[in-house]
Write a protein that binds this DNA or RNA. Structure first.
Length: 286
DNA sequence: GTTTAACCCTGCACGC
DNA sequence: TGCGTGCAGGGTTAAA
């Protein structure tokens, strides 16, 4: 799940769970459920599950923010539930009567009825509670760079930063310390949109290329949110209510190896770069 | 400073 | 049919 999917989830939660009071939270049995709340597993803690759930019971959700790919659910009483979906994590809204899907690790039940389930087969996802005052010191959040949707993300400052680095564009775009929210799918799409190859060095970009890149980041992220995210067959992202996104139909290069480029008909190629699959058009990107 | 690889985990597509 | 193998991916960390 990358920025657009997390943002769609944030908006769903804002509409549907902000203002609701949590009746109780349950961490399911099994080692994988404990993995999801692993950050609470500090030495000296008596019951890890209790340590987590006691922060949630009786609290009202007051606001939902996003920082990069992290969601911050603010609770009254000045605590914050921090959530990262990893690659297979998701929140699902349901009623008590609906059976829990496999790999449900946490269930948050509301006082007015209904619940939200955190489901995550591969358990790369994570959730933990921290005091709002301590958010600045949380290691996972401290390094998260500027969000491409923020007003302060400008092409001038972006270009200035790129010129000071000498790194390949693909891993650089995926680096959350540089710009937050892009993962493997959208970094490929952004590079195609900007006409840049995955292995172009950041300090060789002309100002025109920087501007094209800047525009591609904003346009693709915003368009993917409008289409409610990308749902690929193998990693089936769905929104809070279980509905898939539509942006997979708009993808220009990701997952399209061997298929004709939508712009020039040249077959899309793929390479592995720093351990990640990268798709690109050898004709349109340089 | 930059890059690579390993690790965590499960589901799925393969090949035999 | 059924099993083993390899791959995918986000983020962190150690090593090159």
């Amino acid at each position: 799940m990358e920025l657009p999917e997390v943002e769609v989830m944030r908006r769903d939660l804002e509409k549907d769970v902000v203002g609701r009071r949590i009746k109780e939270a349950e961490v399911r049995q099994g080692p994988n459920a404990l993995r999801v709340i692993r950050r609470h597993n500090k030495p000296g803690t008596k019951g890890v599950r209790k340590e987590f759930t006691s922060h949630l019971a009786g609290r009202k959700i007051t606001k939902v923010e996003r920082k990069g790919k992290y969601l911050l659910l603010h609770l009254d009483g000045a605590d914050v539930l921090v959530v990262h979906f990893g690659m297979s994590g998701q929140f699902l809204r349901a009623t008590k009567r609906q059976p829990l899907p496999p790999h449900t690790h946490v269930v948050i039940t509301f006082a007015q009825g209904g619940d939200v389930r955190f489901v995550d087969p591969r358990t790369f996802g994570e959730m933990f509670v921290t005091a709002a005052d301590d958010l600045g010191t949380v290691r996972e959040l401290a390094h998260i760079a500027i969000d491409p949707l923020e007003d302060t993300f400008t092409w001038a400052s972006f270009g200035e930063y790129l010129s000071q680095r000498a790194a390949k564009m693909k891993p650089l775009l995926m680096d959350q310390k540089v710009i937050s929210g892009l993962g493997n799918i959208y970094s490929d799409e952004v590079l195609f949109g900007a006409g840049l190859r995955h292995d172009r060095m950041s300090d060789t970009l002309s100002s025109g290329e920087v501007r094209r890149l800047y525009r591609a980041v904003q346009e693709i992220v915003q368009e993917a949110i409008r289409y409610r995210g990308t749902t690929l067959p193998d990693e089936a992202y769905v929104d809070l209510f279980g509905r898939p996104g539509e942006y997979q139909n708009e993808l220009k290069v990701y997952g399209r190896k061997g298929l004709p480029c939508r712009r020039c008909r040249t077959p899309i190629e793929s390479v592995t770069i720093s351990g990640r699959r990268s798709f690109y058009c050898p004709q349109c990107q340089s």
